[in-house]
Design a protein around this nucleic acid. Sequence first.
RNA 1: GGCGCUAUCGUCUAACGGUUAGGACGGAGCCCUCUCAAGGCUUAAAUACGGGUUCGAUUCCCGUUAGCGCUACCA
Length: 473
Amino acid sequence: MVRVRFAPSPTGYLHIGSARTFVFNWFFARSNGGAVILRLDDTDIERNTEVSVQSIFDGLKWLGLSWDEYYRQSDRSALHQAAADAIFAKGMAYRDFTPAHQGEDNRPHESGPWLQNPGAREVSPEESDRRAAAGEPFVLRFKVPRGSGRKVAFPDRVYGPQEKDAGDIEDFALLRSNGAATYHLASCADDVDLKITHIIRGQDHISNTFKHVLIFEALGHPLPEFAHLPLLVAPDQAKLSKRRHGPAVSVTTYRDAGFVAPAYINFISLLGWSPKDNREQMTVPELQEAFTLDNVNRASATVNFTDEDPIDPKALWLNSQHLRTMPVDMLAPEVRNALDRAGIAVEHGDASFAAVVDLIRARYQTLHDFESKGRAYFAADFPMTPEAEARLDAPGARELCRELSQRLAAVSTFTEESVEQALRQLATDRAVKAGVIINASRAALTGQAVGPGAFAIFTAVGRERAIERLARV
RNA sequence: GGCGCUAUCGUCUAACGGUUAGGACGGAGCCCUCUCAAGGCUUAAAUACGGGUUCGAUUCCCGUUAGCGCUACCA
């Protein structure tokens, strides 16, 4: 039974890299009949915030990919403590009473790695127990094996076999002086307890994994499979960070820009992974079906954004593709919500609403376009663009619109065909090109100089409104 | 400094050791057309550098360079 976990730490909003990690975990689990576990790695109480927890949930909920189990590490400190005790009891960890260093890192590792605080390992068990009993604060450190030629190794599903000299691994902390578990301990203890089979996470964890291998071994637990994902970087090649790159890296930026979740998922899936068959636009089920760890790349991928525009152009293109191809009954509720948030009251019933959405969606790139460019299809009031104004300013255009209005008021049935017939007849009668009336009508009906085929617009806007809008030019 | 990871068009990427190095976004141009999109077509644009191995290297090996990551009582 495959069990994967997504373990964000709530120190900020859900960012694009985390979202991709979640999505890949989800694809892997779902295509292997496995379980997805959401675990908040919130052991660093100083830096965690509830706001962040909320925004992570907001982001995940928007993606619309479900998880099966949910845990918070802060609820599981007894488990972490027990793991620390077990490792300590085996003599694989020791207390370090050295005060925490603060400010500049002045430890002497200019010529090599820092491995441990001098003398800390040599404190006798008796003295260690005595000082601990006396209440002297300490960190519990893992006693990394120092034998010559001792290697730590693990296979990585993406990066291949990994190996490192134990001599290059420092005696990392398991427990902080306040008694709380560090990330390393808590993460491994929980992975063991939650029976995680595959750890899929960012490549920035590769060097941590050697430490984790040591912990798993100390806990007497077989290694889960590891798969590290290439990093997502900013256009300046730096690791994405909210401090340096701002909201461009937040999932909610895309949501708020009018993206539909499947398009966003499609976009981030193509960062560091590809189906290898030249497909680009894919639905979530297609992505899940095609996803394999073997097709994950190793080089980091750049997310394109600028100070002026936080949205990657390819993401925008994918969004427009999804808007025009996703099932209209899946899109319509999203559009309705968007219009709702924009304060546009929609009078349409579901069927006619879906028909209008279907008519105009091929021209739009984001959900916001429905409220702006598409406003006239839903609202009684709408602005007129300068280009549309120009259409009406064409010689005779306004008069023709008014006359068309009168003629349409007289037709018995109001269909695309009857409208076209009336309009072309008017053109013939007045000896003008039909195009003039067509373009002027589009402007009068929608406030836009551009849009769908003109006759379809008449029925989309509806008889009453069409006649009224033509009359008042 | 140490350790690790990586390197194909501007960006995302494809290429059993043999291709005119392919696709996509974005750019340029054309076609279609009642407008604008869409769609179709065309076009510019890449194997970081240097050595090997091989009949043949984008692909395998070594080195250089560059970038990134880790090097906390953060995760």
